[in-house]
Amino acid sequence: MTYKLILNGKTLKGETTTEAVDAATAEKIFKQYANDNGVDGEWTYDDATKTFTVTE
């Protein structure tokens, strides 16, 4: 399945997608991606749209 991440960081904003077997796997990938890019904030997930959002 395709999952989407919306980044609302102070210095980085944008979107990315990943292919993952489930939401938990996608979350791990996205949290590593956000960490690698210096984004740390409040996480939400919308199962209907398979979208994670992180807001600093």
Rank of each mutant, 00 (worst) to 15 (best):
K31G: 03
E27K: 12
M1T: 15
I6F: 07
V39K: 02
V39P: 02
G38W: 05
T17V: 10
T16R: 13
A23E: 07
A20T: 06
T49F: 05
K28R: 13
D46M: 04
V21S: 13
E42P: 05
K13F: 10
Y33Q: 03
G38E: 06
L7D: 01
T51S: 05
D36Q: 14
T51Y: 03
L5W: 03
K13S: 10
F52S: 00
A34T: 06
E56T: 07
I6V: 11
V21G: 11
K50R: 15
G41I: 02
G14H: 12
V39Q: 04
Y33T: 03
A24N: 09
T18Q: 06
T17D: 05
G14M: 15
Q32P: 02
G14K: 13
N35V: 14
T44H: 11
T25V: 09
T53A: 05
M1K: 13
D46Q: 05
F52G: 00
G9L: 14
L5M: 05
A23M: 13
I29R: 07
T51A: 04
N35R: 15
D40N: 14
W43G: 00
T18L: 09
K28P: 03
K50F: 11
K10D: 07
F30G: 00
E42Q: 11
E42K: 10
Q32I: 12
N37T: 08
A24S: 11
G38Y: 07
G41L: 03
K13T: 13
M1A: 12
A23W: 12
K31I: 08
I29M: 08
T51D: 01
T44Q: 10
W43S: 01
K10A: 12
L5K: 00
T2H: 09
L12Q: 09
K13Y: 14
V21Y: 08
K28L: 13
D46V: 06
E27M: 14
K28T: 10
K4E: 03
A26P: 01
I29W: 13
V54S: 02
G14T: 14
M1Q: 14
E15F: 14
T44I: 09
T16E: 06
L12Y: 13
E42V: 15
G41Y: 03
N8H: 10
F30L: 05
T49N: 08
F52V: 01
A48T: 12
Y45K: 01
F30M: 03
A23I: 12
T51V: 07
Y3A: 01
V21F: 13
M1Y: 15
A34L: 08
T51Q: 04
I6L: 08
T44V: 11
Q32E: 09
V54H: 02
T53W: 11
T44D: 07
T16V: 15
M1E: 13
T2L: 14
D40V: 15
T53H: 06
A20I: 02
T51I: 06
L12W: 14
K28I: 10
M1L: 15
T18A: 11
T16H: 14
K50H: 13
F52N: 00
E27A: 11
K4Q: 05
I29H: 09
D47P: 15
M1R: 10
G14E: 08
D47A: 14
K4H: 12
T51P: 00
L12P: 04
Y3F: 15
I29S: 05
A34K: 01
W43I: 03
F52M: 02
E56G: 05
K50D: 03
K31W: 08
D36Y: 09
E19S: 10
Y33D: 02
D22T: 05
I29N: 06
T49G: 05
N37D: 03
N37A: 14
N8L: 11
T44G: 07
E42S: 10
E19R: 08
W43P: 01
E15M: 13
A20N: 04
G9T: 14
T53K: 06
